[in-house]
Amino acid sequence: MRVGLFVTCLIDLMRPEIGMSVLDLLESAGCEVVVPETQTCCGQPGYNSGERSIARDLAQKFLDEFEEFDYVVVPSGSCGGMVKAHYGDLLRDDPELMGRFERLQPRVYELTDFLVNVLKLDKVPGTFSGEVTYHDSCSGLRELGVQAQPRALLGLLPGVTLTEMKDCQACCGFGGTFALKYGDISTAIVDEKCANIKASGAPTVVLGDLGCILNIEGRLRRTGDRTTRVLHIAEVLAGRSDK
């Protein structure tokens, strides 16, 4: 099985260790993983800002780079949601590109969805131990139906205790360009999320989208919390959270 890994620009630039964790997970499950070197952005920032021509060019670029693979895996509900839920809107006026997208779309998966529903993993290489709480990222949950999958994977680690926080499905306030345009509102939302994380009593919050990680961890640190760990689920499952 040849899998194209769309690393995402945030992971590439900010937390490459998450990408390495994804690679570990896929290769340990027997996948041949290819990371196209020319990949860049999924186009979501442009799309959200009304720059449809730029987003469309990036959608076509994505097709050019990934349509040859058996599957495409994206370790981000936000980027995965952009591809699966919004490329059709961008490409609908071009029958040739739309046809290519329709053939690729069913093979594009968010990471945990792929691990559970395609690979059907019954074990993972990580050995994480401790209590965690889980934040459901908006795009993964609402556009891709990712909710049970990460919890099922955490359940494969016998040392993990999952304690659900209040309003685990509520937004963290990042929302891509939303956090830039509406900083005060974004801060109020993430403050509520941080309060719920702390109230859960779990020393670690796990999630599947780096945008949410940067927003939550950044706010925790700026408000004096130096101890709560904020980890991508790939780091936990691959055993790279202490590396």
Rank of each mutant, 00 (worst) to 15 (best):
Ala170Trp: 06
Leu63Asp: 09
Tyr71Leu: 09
Ala195Ser: 13
Val205Lys: 00
Ile18Leu: 04
Leu97Val: 14
Arg219Val: 02
Leu111Ile: 11
Lys61Ile: 01
Leu13Trp: 12
Pro16Ala: 10
Leu10Trp: 00
Leu237Gly: 08
Lys198Thr: 13
Arg142Asn: 13
Phe101Val: 06
Leu144Ala: 05
Arg240Ala: 11
Met165His: 01
Cys168Thr: 12
Val33Phe: 04
Gly19Val: 09
Ile185Asp: 10
Asn196Pro: 03
Thr187Glu: 15
Thr204Lys: 01
Glu96Ile: 06
Asp94Met: 13
Asp167Val: 00
Val74Asp: 04
Gly208Gln: 03
Asp209Tyr: 01
Arg92Met: 10
Lys181Val: 07
Gly46Thr: 07
Pro125Cys: 10
Val124Ile: 03
Arg2Glu: 14
Met20Lys: 14
Pro36Arg: 08
Thr177Ala: 10
Leu210Ile: 15
Leu157Ala: 13
Gln105Ala: 15
Asn117Gly: 01
Val118Met: 08
Gly88Trp: 08
Arg221Cys: 01
Pro75Glu: 07
Arg100His: 07
Ser137Gln: 02
Arg229Thr: 08
Phe178Arg: 04
Leu154Lys: 00
Val34Phe: 12
Lys123Ser: 15
Glu164Thr: 07
Val124Arg: 00
Ala152Gly: 06
Arg240Met: 13
Val34Met: 07
Thr204Ile: 07
Val205Leu: 02
Leu220Gly: 07
Lys120Gln: 15
Thr177Asn: 06
Ser21Asn: 06
Leu119Cys: 10
Asp12Ile: 05
Gly43Cys: 01
Thr227Asn: 13
Gly140Asp: 00
Asn117Trp: 01
Asp191Leu: 13
Phe101Gln: 05
Gly175Ala: 11
Pro203Arg: 06
Ala29Phe: 08
Gly224Leu: 08
Val73Cys: 08
Glu96Asn: 05
Leu91Phe: 06
Leu111Tyr: 09
Leu210Asp: 10
Gly88Cys: 07
Ser241Val: 01
Cys9Arg: 02
Asp113Trp: 01
Val22Pro: 00
Cys9Asp: 10
Gln44Asp: 07
Arg107Asp: 01
Gln169Tyr: 09
Thr8His: 02
Lys84Arg: 15
Gln169His: 13
Val34Glu: 13
Ser186Met: 03
Cys9Lys: 03
